[in-house]
Amino acid sequence: MDVLILAGGLSHERDVSVRSGRRVAEELRDRGLKVEVRDVDTGLLPALREHADAVVWPLLHGASGEDGSLQALLELTGARYVGTRSKEARVAWVKPVAKAVYGGEDAATPDFVTLPQSLFREVGADQVLDAIVQRFGLPLVVKPARGGSALGVSLVRERDQLARAMVHCFAYGDNAMIETAVDGTEIAVSVIGTGDGARALAPVEIVCDGPYDYDARYNPGRVEYFTPARLDESATATVTDAALAVHRRLGLRDLSRVDMILDGQGRAQVLDINIAPGLTETSLLPQAAAGSGEDLGALYESIVRGVTAH
Rank of each mutant, 00 (worst) to 15 (best):
D213Q: 04
G173R: 02
A25W: 05
R121Q: 10
F120C: 01
R38Y: 01
G9I: 02
A276W: 00
I187P: 09
D241K: 13
Q161I: 11
G68Y: 09
R121K: 10
G184I: 10
S190P: 12
F112Y: 15
A198L: 09
D209Y: 05
A176I: 04
V153K: 01
N175L: 12
V156I: 10
D67C: 11
L262H: 11
G297D: 02
I192N: 01
V113E: 15
R157Q: 12
I206W: 02
D126T: 02
R14L: 04
G184D: 11
E88P: 00
D41V: 04
D209P: 00
T280H: 03
I261S: 05
A7T: 06
V142H: 03
S149G: 09
W93Q: 09
R121E: 14
A276K: 07
G137H: 09
E205D: 07
T227E: 03
V16Q: 01
T114D: 13
L162N: 07
A89M: 02
V153T: 01
C169V: 06
G195E: 13
A150G: 06
R164Y: 15
S20N: 08
A242C: 06
A171M: 11
P277D: 07
A181T: 00
T114Y: 06
L296E: 07
K87D: 14
E122Y: 03
I261F: 15
V270A: 11
E294W: 13
A150K: 03
L244F: 09
D254S: 08
L138W: 08
L201K: 05
R257S: 02
A107W: 04
Q265G: 15
V82I: 14
R267V: 13
M1Y: 03
E301A: 15
E233V: 14
Q127I: 03
Q127H: 12
I261N: 07
L250H: 06
I192Y: 02
A145N: 04
A131F: 03
I187M: 11
F120T: 00
P203I: 06
G291E: 07
G264I: 00
L73K: 05
S256P: 05
D67S: 14
V239R: 01
E26H: 06
V3N: 06
N274E: 10
E179C: 04
A125W: 04
G251E: 03
L244D: 05
Q127F: 12
T238E: 06
